[in-house]
Design a binder for these strands. Structure first.
Lengths: 338, 338
DNA sequence: CTGAAAGCGCTAACAC
DNA sequence: GTGTTAGCGCTTTCAG
């Protein structure tokens, strides 16, 4: 067995209380005993038991992070940021893969409750009533990242999707495009779906460009396949389309792939702008112009907010809109050049 | 505060021992008291405290996973597999980002030791002496994934890199290529570096093809940039090169990107085969032919082995070579067609 | 079948 | 300065 505080106390000929004080950097002992105890700790290879500590402090120094999918490129960047902030704040992070399943999510939340995590980061999904009830039961702070709750007042860290989509569309318009299509998400998705489509529409309208259902395809997901399948549909509805806004980078790259297959040249015949700025955006050819979400920063910020909330330094959490920007690469051509 | 076992006992008018038995599904109580207790549990919303449990059982039902980089596409797929297996086995997983830093790794290992994790998964890095010493101190099982230890006898889950590289090269040769180059890793890297380069050389030799330093560039890392920078170098050394084996998909795609810029057509003028089969391999254009490592499966398998080790079902861990395969897509052309 | 009590490793009063 | 002691919430003998 690992040595305990008792063993150290015995070895150093002091009481366990003294050892505890020294280990925790409190006051109340002479330099002499301190040295003695530290030698004993060294000699025995003593490591304090965080479990016992947690039992008494009611603090586990651990947070839980829930993702709909841990291997997604979006999630993994956010996770890196969260892990970073947590670690800096002295916390460990338990990852949970909800697989977008309500049952799994509830199961995980219960687990995190039993494990007495000090806080939770909830990513990329809508907060259902069941979840919120558990949050309340747990009485630990919760921070949303890359999502927001339509019904509950929970702090979030995200970018303004409406604005991002609006700007992306305007960017295309500024480049001289007039027949612009969009590969969108779902009208059921209040987070990434509706706002991005609305931003698109409003930008067209503001600039006096027409919008109809022909300008848009909706999709269940935001994956490569969705984009790849959407492009031909969109092209059929809008044969003169010169530019395209995709609601995610994966979709944009899917569309690019479909374009290659159809012999449509990007960006010469079709300009494409994506959304997210995943690592792949700069790896594809032509490199994708896209709306950049500071994914890692978002994770980091969410982690920091949570840590502050746990430490009680901030009572009320401030939600944060993170700045987005348009990263210009090679997938959009300027029609005004001609 | 959350209700404790005491509260439940009081509410149900029984002793805490009885509640404990019922909660843990042990025997020794009447159906009647069981019902009574369950109602109390329900009424109070009681959740057993895993911390207190862990203190007494010396089991936290938690494992730690160390990655050199959590946002890498390789790591994130492995992580998903690990998380899956762990969850199925009733364990939670704490992720740790070592950032390839020895200091950070040691710090994390200490942390995991304090948190009393039941086991560790160590990914993609060589096991240094310092690490191994801590593993021994901790007395918990360790499983390596996507790496192996040259010095220590630790169970691992990985693919045979030498074989993978050998087959990839042979694949190119079978397609009629004779001037074949390689973008490799480092001779300092005994895991992914040397074996893949050796496999490449040996395959050339077996088929009577020449090999010299001109056929290879070495790199510090396996990233997109490394590949992108390597291609021009290689092309200068080996102007007649018709095919290329890259030691990672990222490098392959980097090379592809450089080829596009140089006006070299893939696969018409230059065939490229990668290594890993990341999700991006099918997203790029042309879709990348590559050596597939079953990343998620590897994580899953490593997780299962670790769980078995912890549960004591298997005393000695069997290391596992996972099967690789060549996924044919569009980045390699068949010279014999002409 | 059920309860009392010891104790997991530690912290935090409270004494001396 | 330092030690004693009472728990944290739970499991597990050991009695009854």
């Amino acid at each position: 067995m690992n040595p305990t505080i008792k063993d150290v106390a015995k070895h150093a000929n002091v009481s366990i209380a003294t050892v505890s004080r020294i280990v925790n950097g409190l006051s109340g002992y002479s330099e002499e005993t301190k040295k003695k105890v530290q030698e004993s700790i060294e000699a025995l290879g003593y490591q304090p038991n965080a479990i016992a500590r947690g039992l008494i402090n009611k603090r586990t120094q651990t947070i839980g992070v829930l993702f709909p999918e841990v291997s997604g490129m979006l999630s993994s960047e956010v996770l890196e940021g969260v892990e970073n902030a947590a670690h800096d704040g002295g916390f460990s992070v338990i990852v949970c893969n909800t697989a977008s399943s309500g049952k799994r999510t509830v199961k995980y939340l219960r687990l995190l409750q039993e494990k007495r995590v000090d806080g939770i980061i909830f990513a990329s999904e809508d907060v259902k009533k069941e979840y919120y009830k558990i949050f309340e039961e747990m009485k630990v702070p919760v921070v949303l990242v890359s999502t927001a709750s339509t019904q509950y007042d929970l702090p979030y860290v995200r970018v303004n999707d409406y604005e991002g989509a609006f700007k992306a569309t305007e960017y295309l318009i500024e480049k001289g495009h007039e027949e612009i299509g969009m590969i969108g998400g779902s009208y059921q998705d209040p987070i990434a779906g509706i706002p991005r489509m609305q931003g698109f529409k409003d930008a067209l309208q503001k600039h006096g460009l027409p919008f109809s259902d022909d300008h848009l395809t909706t999709n269940e997901g935001y994956r490569f396949q969705n984009g790849k399948e959407s492009l031909p549909l969109l092209l059929k509805k809008l044969p003169n389309m010169t530019a395209l806004f995709a609601a995610s980078d994966e979709m944009a790259i899917g569309a690019m792939s479909a374009a290659h297959q159809l012999g449509v040249k990007v960006p010469e015949e079709l300009s494409i702008i994506g959304y997210d700025n995943l690592k792949i955006a700069e790896m594809c050819y032509p490199a994708l112009t896209t709306v950049s979400q500071p994914l890692k920063d978002m994770g980091q910020t969410a982690g920091e907010i949570l840590v502050n909330l746990i430490k009680g330094e901030k009572k009320e959490a401030e939600s944060r809109y993170m700045p987005f920007s348009i990263v210009e690469r090679q997938s959009v051509s300027d029609l005004r050049d001609k």
